[in-house]
């Protein structure tokens, strides 16, 4: 009995634990039985086309939307409870900060709300981290959308939350800003925090996430490691007699090439798909 309890303990304390979650907005079923887990030190990408339910799932986790059925837990606390809200940092997909506050005041306000004791040092570090050091005293109504998104990211990291949930964090960012987010997420992973990153940008997710969950019409259409998801895919082989495309897992490639060689073909080029995740994603998401 003690052993069983010990065995279950990690289950209880997953950073995010979603089980058979349903959410209906009137007749619209935004979530239809979604389950996923994110552990500490793990970066999970939430992918899916517009309207798949990504933001709804994220909002349930942050306590903004009440689930219709199923369970969602944050660091072991029921999503929406004070404990759950205290352990996470959240960047909403659509948000605004009070236009009459300065960048630094917004961060200070959220430090107070989150009960962070980081003070001026934490403020300066976070504002610098998102590349807003030059605009710390500027008012929100004088910031571009991208600058506001950077501020939103700094806000989400206030109080060193163990769980960070970012909903489309790079939608308004320039290439430099996108790289900043990638590096920042990598840092969070190293620090052992759990990150859930919702995005429709596949390349971005492919570069920073350990695991991917693909949503489609409120259901998990596929999930796994980035490599695993993309493993069974097409390989383009260029030989002396022409170009052929094979559906093949990565592990099948040597065999395929050996086959050509055995048949006496000259193999000039073996090319796995460049956008591998994109292919896997489109396969899972498209109507079949």
């Amino acid at each position: 009995m003690a052993l069983r309890l010990a065995g279950y303990a990690p289950d209880m304390t997953a950073a995010l634990d979603v089980d058979d979650l349903h959410k209906a907005f009137g007749p619209i079923e935004a979530l239809r039985g979604v389950s996923l887990r994110v552990e500490a030190g793990q970066v999970v990408g939430l992918l899916g086309p517009n309207g798949a339910g990504k933001s709804t799932l994220v909002k349930v986790l942050c306590g903004l939307v009440r689930p219709s059925a199923g369970s969602a837990r944050v660091s072991g606390h029921r999503a929406g409870s004070t404990g759950a809200r205290a352990s996470l940092g959240y960047l909403a997909e659509l948000f605004r900060f009070p236009p009459w506050l300065s960048v630094e005041e917004v961060v200070a306000f959220h430090q107070q709300l989150a009960g962070s004791r980081g003070g001026q040092a934490e403020r300066a570090r976070l504002i610098e981290r998102v590349g807003m050091g030059h605009a710390a005293s500027r008012r929100v109504d004088a910031l571009s959308k991208g600058m506001q998104q950077r501020l939103g990211i700094a806000q989400a990291l206030v109080g060193e939350p163990q769980v960070v949930i970012l909903d489309e964090p790079t939608s308004a960012l320039d290439p430099e800003g996108r790289r900043m987010v990638r590096e920042l997420v990598a840092d969070l992973r190293v620090e052992g925090r759990a990150v859930l990153l919702s995005s429709h940008l596949l390349a971005e997710v492919e570069q920073v996430c350990d695991e991917v969950v693909i949503l489609r019409r409120g259901e998990v259409a596929g999930s796994g490691s980035v490599d695993g998801l993309a493993s069974e895919h097409t390989v383009t082989i260029v030989t002396g007699s022409g170009t052929e495309v094979h559906v093949a897992a990565r592990a099948d490639v040597p065999g395929l090439v050996a086959g050509y060689v055995e048949r006496g073909e000259e193999v000039f080029e073996v090319r796995p798909d460049v956008n591998r995740l994109e292919e896997a994603y489109l396969d899972l998401v498209e109507d079949r």
């Binding site: 903004l64 809200r85 996470l88 959240y90 909403a92 959220h110 709300l113 806000q155």
Partner: peptide
């Protein structure tokens, strides 16, 4: 306007 969500996602009832 999106002003409320960042606040009530914090531990404020």
């Amino acid at each position: 306007q999106g002003l409320l969500q960042p606040i009530v996602a914090r531990p404020v009832g």
